[in-house]
Amino acid sequence: MSSAPLLELSGVDLSYGPYRALFGVSFTVSARAAVALVGSNGSGKTSVARVVSGLVRARAGSIRFDGRDVTRWPAWRIARAGLVHVPEGRSVLGSLTVEENLLLGLEGLAGRHGGAGALERAYSMFPRLSDRRRQLAGTLSGGEQRMLALGRAVAVPEQLLVVDELSLGLSPTVVDEIFSGLREILASGTSLLVIEQHVERVLALAERVVVLAHGRVAGEGPAGELAGVLSSLRPSPGRPEPPTSAAGGGLA
């Protein structure tokens, strides 16, 4: 691969009306690589995803995708250039059927691609979707909705997939299914930018980690090396709480 990164943010500032969300965020995602974006609630992870996909416009700084400056591009143009953003929470169009959701993505992103083969790819990765192709997407369970959202990226392999809190509110077995899907997508050559609460899982998937805190990049490095930075930001969910010295002090 060439040395130029697939996605490059440099000095990105973002605000919602009077509220600043991002302060000079810079990092890169290389081609065929997976980057994890972690940080506590309110640290700006979702804002990064939104600014990358063009849902909100950066106030300053620049975003380059696939060698082009996309900072001022509208979302649909960025999507057609090969960047799929699966937003947090409800990430499908509920008033469309499963198949229509997939078709919408296909037609918009790649009118040139044959539809049938693309649909089959999505259905073969998530067979449950195939059973429900005529069902309204809004009536799917949370896990099935995330599968559908991922299925879009599978149907037409794109260059970069940005996923925001895919595992939120899902049962562990479904999360397994979703993560194996992500692994497959990565193996097929699509880069990933993963925002995730399950830090262990995402560290197993991604080779690099970017840590956000208060809208700024607090640290960045290979996945293995960042455990220290992470534990300083918040206790890992898997580990027991440290001895209750603080609580005890409060009671005393």
């Binding site: 979302a75 999507a79 057609r80 937003p87 499908v92 169009l93 008033s95 469309l96 993505g105 992103l109």
Partner: peptide, 24 residues
């Protein structure tokens, strides 16, 4: 399919439709 589908997508969420490459 082209127009009808897109219109339904746009009315539900113009932004979500844009993420699907639709010019809302």
């Amino acid at each position: 399919r082209r127009l009808g589908l897109r219109m339904r997508a746009v009315v539900e969420s113009p932004r979500m439709a844009e993420l699907h490459g639709v010019r809302s």
